[in-house]
Amino acid sequence: MDTISKLLIITLSSALVSNVILSQFLGICPFLGVSKKIKTALGMGEAVIFVITLASIVTSIIYKYILEPFELTYLKTIVFILIIAALVQFVEMFLKRFVTSLYKSLGVYLPLITTNCAVLGVALTNVQKDYSMLSSVVNGFATALGFTIAIVILAGIREKTEYNEVPKAFKGMPIVLITAGLMAIAFYGFQGLL
């Protein structure tokens, strides 16, 4: 029971309270770049959930069973970035060969994820907070879920406001950033949740 409540707290705090985009600012590029349409935003979100969850599993296994026993923890940044890059390549090849339907829906987004700092950020947070393997996976999934929630909401707002009249200087990116700022204020309200 204790572990379940602990995992629930991790989920809530990663997905809502300290949302990966709106309060930690990781993964801003895809957040601003792939949020024009709800459908593409959802696709990106699914791919991120898939990759981050997988990356959390793999990085925490390698950290726990290879880096820690051999006292190589100072190499974590180098090892993690290489694992993530290799993992994304591998997942892409695997999906292409065996799960074609999933590849068709996620394929385009996968290469965009390697340099997404959210993936490395989650792996490092897991280590920093000394999470167990189960907690790491839950944290990874919840963080990615938070990413998806934020990007889909932003896409929804952008679809509605696309043809609104805004001052000339604020057309394009500035108005999107202001929207994101207002969303961040809304998400700030979750602060009292925990």
Partner: peptide, 25 residues
């Protein structure tokens, strides 16, 4: 105090980008 919290970052960057757009126009 909103400006040193997370939302403020978006607002400041939005202002900055808008300023850049003004120069561009």
């Amino acid at each position: 105090s909103i400006f040193i919290l997370a939302p403020g970052a978006f607002f400041v960057l939005a202002g900055l980008t808008a300023l850049q757009n003004v120069f561009k126009i």
